[in-house]
Amino acid sequence: MGELDLGMVNWARAQFTLTAMYHWLFVPITLGLSFLCAFFETIYVRTGKEEWKRLTKFWMTLFGINFAIGVATGIILEFEFGTNWSNYSWMVGDIFGAPLAIEGIFAFFIEATFFAVMFFGWERTSKGFHLFSTWMVAIGSNLSALWILVANSWMQYPVGMVFNPDTARFEMQNIWEVILSPVAVAKFTHTTSSSFVVGSLFVIAVSSYYLLKKRHIDMAKKSILVASVFGLLSGLFTAFTGDESAFVNASTQPMKLAAYEGLYKGSRGADIVAFGMLTPGKRTGDGQEPFAFEISIPRGLALLATREWNGFVPGIEDLVYGNSAEGLVGAADMIERGKKAIVDLAAYKAARKAGDDAAGKAALERFNVNKDYLGYGYMTRPEEIVPPVASTYYSFHYMVYVGTFIIFLMLFFLKAGLSDRLAENRLLLRLGVASFFLAYLASELGWVVAEVGRQPWAIQDMLPVKMAATNIGSGHVQGTFLLFFILFAVLLLAEIKIMIKQIKIGPEVA
């Protein structure tokens, strides 16, 4: 496996970034609004009041507009694994492909089937079956997210598999280890509950717009009351699962944790930086102070990462250069062992080809000693294992700040709703509209933390991104990048236009 054209790798990265972040414009609303539609329709079926039916159909219309483009962009993402990341697909397709296939033939089929009933079955099916269909769309959407997040979690924490030296592929050994890995469970609960917050804020933003315009006042108040309860509880659950995700990161991806916390030098009882600006131009091992200024909470990071006041949290430089006092091996040693593994694997293949069983057996034994470091063998220097720190650090902190702010915002909306003072609190309503966009950005930046923080690995500690791409010229990807960019821009403008038009029409004729 020779090294690939870095220009191609970066264009493939750019295309995946564009497609994934565009796809994620639609997913959080699908995950959150689907459950809110199920809540609204359940209330309609229980009360039999037409106003709840009208309200449900209105939010379902907006859900449908959003859903259509979300599906289309998700399909493009899956194809990119084949077109742009064929080395990746070759090496780990047996494992990575399984949850993606389950998502398609199981979860998405549930969504798609019941989506049709939900939209076109109001007059054709019984109330009970229609309600069941709406719940199945919500459950199916979230099950879709589960399988995709299981696949992503395996990239962050590869478990349940074994490397086959004969084919140079990773093969699945235990699917339950993959599905129930601590990273997968934390990621699924954190990602979906944060999407419930975004979905709730979407309902609050549109309803706030109506209250500011003094239209559909009763419907807007009802919607805000339900959405603020769901948003508040989901926001609190998101904070809880976010904390658990960081704790899991400490053992599975310590470099990512160090990057998003801006921790260069590890220590026992490490402080956590609540507010801080990184020193511009800071490089690993350059001796500069990591922060231009900072406000820290004593021992906060030790408590977060180890659940102990005096626990050791490794910093970026401990992981790169090693820390003998804490038993950490530096990256230079791992790179050396990785290079030996590459040589021994090549020797094993050559011996097999020549029919020399004795030499093959000896090479395989040598390979097995260092096989866990195979991915490191493709690194050229220890500092290469450090992800882009600034983008990871700032994305993480923005996400935490906005997540905390949204919890308080939900509380204020709930309080105003309970005391029937929503319509007169115009500042809160304006905040409700604006905060939707803040939360959207926080949701996108959560993925920046997850994916940029994993760099330079496609699969943590096993396969570097630079070895995962397809060996073609970058011109191929540049062309489709431009095509997707134009297509996405046109689709987004069309979607926003249709969405705004439908919101302006409102619930009467929806």
């Binding site: 459950f35 809540f39 359940t42 209330i43 009360t47 129930l180 601590p182 469970v185 934390a186 699924f188 609960t189 979906t192 509950s193 419930f196 108040k221 009802k222 009351l225 339900v226 309860v229 769901f230 509880l233 989901s234 659950f237 809880f240 699962t241 658990e244 709930l414 709703g417 309970l418 029937d420």
Partner: peptide, 30 residues
């Protein structure tokens, strides 16, 4: 923790619905 997170996730949806209905009744908005 796996069980806590997964049961918590289901409880989040059930409790959200029940709390929303209770508050709609309380505020005479149902």
């Amino acid at each position: 923790m796996t069980a806590v997170l997964l049961i918590g996730w289901i409880a989040l949806i059930v409790v959200s619905y029940k709390a929303a209905v209770a508050l709609l009744i309380k505020t005479n908005n149902l």
